[in-house]
């Protein structure tokens, strides 16, 4: 399909994609430009603010004009990293661990089950698929408290596992993987592999996974962002602040600021640094964000 090639991987200069747009050369509309720029300004404004605010000293944060930069960025970063012997780094590493491992395992689990649901006929298939679809509609956070109570029974709360294990299953990832397996893995190829004597698992690892690769990157990104941004699950599961991800850690810092206003600038600097990795990941992998929910398909 032409869709993915029409989306450039990196936002280069604005002139490039529009000139070669498949819609051809058409007269520019001032109204469209103005509206789109307004949308962009609205979305970028808080990010611009945090960039400027983290250069201020804690006194300046509440006294100087909102968008007036200052010179204290490195002091603030130093303070942030000195906070309780670098606890912030620990939160960053924890977040990367939860999101990286959780999303990787979840993608593999989704790929396997999506492949099975798309390419095999077996008793109970329809039931399994319907249950998974129902899972897509169940709001995840409703599960968090019963999950906590169950994990507490086996003594797993307040451990890395309590956040990792529930993150490894994503009904939506399975749903996407099934669509993707159906669209990209031809039955003839599976048959050829079978005739060559390859077993099911070997076929899956050597033939199916490479074919599904670009769709699985999308599934991975979805789950990675969902875990990275998750607040409620780790908030409920974890008590030890050495296990916190960034979201829970920053929320705790903000609470401290209520009694200790000098903490606010540390919170602001922490917020800035926390969004850098994900924003970089986004800009780098933008061409993988092309999910067509309506057609029920990930564009190949």
């Amino acid at each position: 399909m032409t869709v993915s090639t029409a989306l450039p991987a990196v936002p280069v200069t604005a002139a490039l994609p529009d000139k070669k747009n498949r819609r051809g050369n058409r007269k520019n509309s001032t109204l469209a430009t103005v509206l789109l720029l307004l949308g962009a300004v609205y979305c970028l404004f808080p990010v611009l603010w945090v960039l400027i605010a983290s250069t201020k000293s804690s006194g300046e944060l509440f006294s100087t004009f909102t968008l007036a930069p200052s010179t204290h960025l490195f002091d603030n970063i130093g303070d942030l990293f000195a906070y309780r012997n670098g606890l912030y780094w620990r939160w960053m590493a924890n977040t990367a661990l939860y999101a990286g491992v959780g999303a990787a395992v979840s993608t593999l689990v989704s790929a396997m089950s999506g492949f099975a649901l798309a390419k095999y006929d077996f008793p109970g298939k329809r039931f399994v698929f319907n249950v998974i679809l129902a899972g897509v509609l169940v709001p995840g956070v409703i599960l968090a408290i019963p999950q906590y109570l169950l994990l507490a029974k086996v003594g797993l709360t307040n451990t890395y596992w309590s956040v990792l294990l529930p993150s490894m299953i994503s009904p939506y990832g399975i749903y996407l993987s099934r669509i993707f397996a159906a669209a990209t893995v031809p039955t003839e190829v599976l048959e050829a592999a079978r005739i060559d004597g390859a077993g099911d698992w070997r076929t899956f690892g050597r033939v199916v996974l490479p074919m599904m690769k670009s769709g699985l990157v999308t599934v991975f990104l979805f789950q990675f962002v969902a875990i990275w941004n998750n607040f409620m699950l780790p908030y409920i599961m974890l008590g030890d602040d050495h296990l916190y991800p960034l979201t829970v850690g920053l929320s705790g810092l903000l609470n401290q600021g209520a009694n200790q206003p000098s903490m606010y600038i540390t919170v602001v600097t922490g917020a800035l640094i926390s969004i850098i990795p994900l924003v970089a990941l986004f800009l780098g992998l933008q061409r993988y964000w092309r999910v067509d929910l309506g057609a029920g398909a990930v564009k190949a």
């Binding site: 529009d18 949308g39 962009a40 970028l44 964000w289």
Partner: peptide
């Protein structure tokens, strides 16, 4: 119909 498409798309998605 605009030259700011890519920029705006990225900014709004951010």
């Amino acid at each position: 119909r605009t030259r700011v498409g890519t920029f705006s798309r990225t900014a709004i998605f951010l």
